[in-house]
Design a protein around this nucleic acid. Structure first.
Length: 233
DNA sequence: ACTGTCAAAGTGCTCC
DNA sequence: GGAGCACTTTGACAGT
């Protein structure tokens, strides 16, 4: 951030302005004023640590939540599901193949259709593959989506949703960075403004003008102000 | 047990 | 009509 200056336009500044204009004049302008999510703290402290590696630490065998079923991937592509809670009174264990589990995941389904919403938890391997793919291109063509879905072992819809959410996270993070940059920029301008006001006050408080000969005015006599302590010559 | 955070998924909108 | 986005809901999970 030290590269920010009040006079010039540093690289950082340019990037900032570019990104800000993208945010304001680009995508977001398609909608009415972007209501900030509570996680964006303008002029507040910066926020959440990077979320990118969140999935990376996840145990590949961690439960996969689908509706009210916890599914744990076992060896040989078999899934153990605990229906209706994590081993509670009404829970019952069900074994199914990974394919069955995926079929169970299905595509869009609304909570209104009886069953509760499903919650998939990606394995670290899946997350890594998606992350790698996102780094290559953050928007997928239909073919790329299908291919990636096949490789990762998810439905195309799930890959699509993951990319959508990932783009949203990237954008949110960038907004946070931009806000922080803007805050610092504002602080600097405030400081600069205070300094200029002090200078002005000093000039106004200076003693009456001193009569001197100004060389740039053909040697004519002129008046120049005397600034406290040092002459402006 | 409670709370906050994160991320998957649902919904509705706009744009092309 | 499909794709992407903003916004929202919801479940998992970690920290207290």
């Amino acid at each position: 951030m030290s590269s920010l200056t009040t006079a010039g336009s540093s690289m950082e500044e340019q990037v900032f302005h570019t990104r800000l204009s993208l945010e304001i004049g680009g995508e977001t302008s398609r909608r009415s004023p972007p209501p900030q999510k509570t996680t964006v703290r303008l002029f507040g402290e910066l926020i959440s640590p990077p979320q990118d590696q969140h999935h990376g630490d996840r145990d590949p065998r961690a439960p996969v939540m689908v509706g009210r079923k916890h599914k744990r991937v076992e060896s040989g592509g078999v899934v153990t599901a605990v229906v209706n809670g994590g081993g509670g009174r009404n829970s019952k264990k069900v074994r199914m193949t990974l394919q069955q589990a995926e079929d169970d995941d299905g595509d869009r389904r609304s909570p209104s259709d009886g069953g509760s919403r499903k919650k998939l938890r990606l394995t670290s391997a899946q997350a890594t593959m998606l992350e790698d793919s996102f780094r290559a291109h953050n928007i997928l063509s239909h073919g790329q989506k299908q291919e990636l879905a096949r490789r990762v072992g998810l439905s195309a819809r799930q890959v699509e949703v993951w990319f959508q959410n990932r783009r949203a996270r990237t954008k949110l993070k960038q907004t946070e960075v931009d806000c922080e940059l803007l805050r610092r920029w504002c602080d600097r301008l405030t400081d600069e403004n205070a300094r200029l006001r002090r200078d002005l006050a000093e000039l106004r408080a200076a003693p009456p003008a001193l009569s001197v000969v100004c060389p740039s005015c053909c040697g004519k006599k002129t008046t120049m102000p005397v600034v406290a302590g040092n002459n402006v010559a």
